[in-house]
């Protein structure tokens, strides 16, 4: 793997916890790599598998689904549903030959700016190890 490889990460963050956690990382000026692009959704439960697939096809090297801690979802239990959905999706992707480690599901609360920053750092490092997404722009859906 070349050292230049900079992974591209797409993050789907729920409005109430993880997006606020990312905001807090900002207000606390906690630095992290600029590899992530965040898409705000109301709840992690609203993240459709199609979004994740689309992002992978478009060439994202890793995906973050960030939600409230289990039990804390602003909408009761959307994050449980997200977890279930992502387990299924990982299985499917694995059978297709994609490393399931590219999909990260993390519970990050509004007071965990540091955790958000650490998660991004960790994702960048791990994804560098994995190398570029093998599916990137290879499919035409």
């Amino acid at each position: 793997m070349s050292e230049e490889f900079e992974p591209k990460i797409v993050g789907f963050l729920c409005n109430w916890c993880s997006y606020a956690g990312a905001d807090l990382a900002g207000t606390s000026r906690i630095q992290y790599p600029a590899n992530i692009r965040v898409i705000r959704v109301m709840c992690s439960g609203a993240v459709d598998s199609v979004y994740v697939n689309r992002a992978l096809i478009e060439g994202a090297d890793a995906i973050l689904i960030g939600g409230c801690h289990l039990g804390d979802c602003h909408y009761l239990n959307g994050n449980y549903k997200a977890r279930r959905k992502m387990v299924l999706l990982k299985n499917i992707l694995e059978t297709l030959g994609m490393e399931p480690e590219r999909i990260w599901v993390k519970w990050i609360s509004a007071s965990e700016g540091q955790k958000f920053a650490d998660t991004v750092k960790e994702m960048v490092e791990e994804t560098k190890r994995l190398g570029p997404n093998p599916f990137a722009k290879r499919w035409n859906v």
């Binding site: 591209k8 979004y51 992002a55 997404n133």
Partner: peptide, 12 residues
């Protein structure tokens, strides 16, 4: 997501 793909994803 598509817009992002057009900008940069996969470019690396």
């Amino acid at each position: 997501i598509k817009a992002l793909g057009a900008c940069s994803l996969g470019g690396g």
